[in-house]
């Protein structure tokens, strides 16, 4: 049998990662009601055939809870990373095209946001917007755009000076044509990959501030809530309450990373050698 080439393997990895994440999201949404079911007749069960992740002290099925929590995290991640990357794109492009003053103002804001520890700023913003879903999304969106904005700014600055862009101007191409035909093919891969690689950050930060109590409210089945609640029961030997949700969270983050990296290799083959 002929060996599969790297490109096809990468494509398979990308599709598998995206497929799996979609499946988690859909499953979590479908089972959302089941995750809330409390049944004291089955409390504190260790993992078994029927409840593969076990049950907690209120008899809730941890597998379903974990799935729902993760799907919530993924949705928050999508929304926050989406908003964040739009901010990044707009600010990055403005910085590169609107002249020196605008550039130094935007660069200053980037440095400012980057200079404050993420988690601190996140907690402040989330708290100011009243915590919960809204607080988390706004918090994550407002803190994660900086590195992508910097990347896009650099890329646009470099493109503006590229000889082939100047040649296109002399060939009578309009600014719009140049932006569309010459700049978009360079920026789009960077943007998409940046967007996807932002998800794992967003998800982890969502989980951490929820864990610390500044994020989603306790009745929601979020990964951060699951982990912080299970802290009490860990010492009582209920290891499954933290281990499985924790592992699945790590797995999700890794999958997003795989998806992002393989997309980068597919869209920008030259970068695979770096």
């Amino acid at each position: 049998m002929k060996k599969m080439n790297g490109r096809i393997l990468t494509l398979v990895a990308f599709i598998a990662a995206v497929g799996f994440l979609t499946a988690i999201t859909i499953a979590g949404t479908v089972f959302a009601d089941e995750a809330m079911v409390v049944d004291f007749s089955r409390k504190n069960l260790a993992p078994c055939g029927q409840y593969i992740f076990g049950t907690d002290w209120m008899g809730r099925d941890m597998f379903v809870r974990t799935l729902t929590g993760l799907s919530m995290s993924i949705k928050i991640g999508l929304l926050a990373a989406g908003v964040s990357s739009i901010i990044a794109f707009i600010l990055g492009t403005l910085a590169a095209t609107m002249g020196k003053t605008v550039d130094s103002i935007i660069t200053w804001i980037i440095d400012l946001v980057m200079g404050i520890p993420h988690i601190l700023l996140l907690i402040l913003i989330s708290y100011a917007f009243g915590k919960g879903f809204k607080g988390v999304v706004i918090g994550v969106a407002l803190t994660h755009w900086t590195s992508l904005a910097r990347l896009i700014r650099g890329e646009v600055l470099q493109l503006k000076e590229a000889t082939y862009i100047k040649v296109a101007e002399k060939l009578g191409k309009s600014k719009f044509e140049i932006a569309w035909k010459h700049m978009v093919p360079h920026l789009l891969p960077q943007f998409l990959v940046g967007l996807i690689l932002m998800f794992p950050h967003a998800i982890l930060h969502e989980a951490s501030i929820t864990f610390l109590g500044f994020g989603l409210s306790p009745e929601q089945p979020a990964i951060g809530i699951i982990l912080s609640e299970s802290m009490t029961y860990l010492t009582m030997g209920k290891w499954w309450l933290a281990v499985f949700p924790g592992l699945l969270l790590v797995f999700t983050v890794v999958l997003f990373d795989v998806a992002g990296e393989s997309l980068r290799k597919l869209l920008d083959p030259a970068s695979a050698h770096v």
Binding site: A162, T163, Y164, V167, K170, L171, G172, K181, H182, P185, H186
Partner: peptide
């Protein structure tokens, strides 16, 4: 304005074509 009637052919062709576009483009 628009198309410049004076066209330059450069010494290094790899600098004047966009690496992400086909030669047809």
């Amino acid at each position: 304005k628009g198309y410049c009637p004076v066209q330059m052919i450069w010494q290094h062709p790899e600098q004047v074509v966009n690496p992400r576009l086909h030669m047809r483009a």
